[in-house]
Amino acid sequence: MIEVFKTNVQEVEQSIMIVGKLLEHLPNSAINFDLDDCDKILRINAASIKNQKIIELLDSYGYHCEVLL
């Protein structure tokens, strides 16, 4: 399952920290950012993804995140 999110993450350092935190919750998944995209895309490829959990996790670190339709 692949899910794509729009975020307000701006810096590579921020994205590295967030990917690390997400991997703690979603081991064995592929997670990456496309910060060159205007929507600062977060892509998660995992067996099971709970969108609300991802949104809440980023929110807890002060970042906006929403499912990109």
Rank of each mutant, 00 (worst) to 15 (best):
K50T: 08
S60E: 09
G20R: 02
Y61W: 11
A46W: 04
L42C: 02
N51K: 07
L42W: 07
E56I: 03
V19P: 03
Y63Q: 06
P27M: 01
L35K: 02
N28T: 05
K21R: 06
G62H: 02
P27I: 03
D37H: 05
D59W: 06
R43S: 13
A30Y: 15
L22E: 06
D59R: 14
I44C: 06
K53T: 09
I54D: 08
I16F: 04
K40V: 06
K53P: 01
D34N: 04
N45H: 04
C65Q: 14
H25R: 13
A46K: 10
I18A: 06
N45Y: 07
G62N: 14
D34A: 02
C38T: 12
I18E: 12
K50N: 14
L22N: 01
I49V: 15
K50C: 10
I31W: 00
L58N: 04
I55M: 02
L57F: 08
R43Y: 03
K53F: 11
D37Q: 10
L26N: 05
I18D: 02
D34L: 07
I55T: 06
K21I: 02
C65I: 06
C38H: 09
L23N: 03
D39Q: 06
E24R: 14
E24W: 04
G62A: 12
I41T: 13
D34V: 01
M17P: 05
I49N: 05
H64P: 09
L57E: 09
L57Q: 07
H25T: 09
A30W: 09
N45V: 01
V19Y: 05
Q52T: 03
A46D: 01
I31H: 10
L42V: 00
Y61C: 08
K50Y: 10
I44M: 09
Y63I: 03
N51R: 10
I31D: 06
C38L: 11
C65A: 14
A47E: 15
K40G: 11
L26M: 08
N28R: 11
V19E: 15
I55K: 14
D59G: 14
I54W: 08
N28A: 10
D39Y: 13
L23T: 04
E56F: 08
R43T: 11
I49D: 04
I55V: 15
N45G: 06
S48D: 08
L23W: 06
V19I: 02
S29D: 12
M17K: 14
C38D: 13
N45W: 11
L26P: 07
F33N: 02
E56A: 07
C38P: 13
F33C: 02
P27G: 01
L26S: 05
M17A: 08
I54R: 12
R43P: 04
S29T: 00
A30R: 15
G20E: 00
K53M: 12
I49M: 01
C65G: 07
I31L: 14
K21D: 02
L35V: 00
N32K: 13
D36G: 14
I18H: 02
D39K: 01
I44A: 10
S29M: 00
I49Y: 10
N28S: 14
I16C: 10
Y61S: 10
I16H: 11
I44H: 05
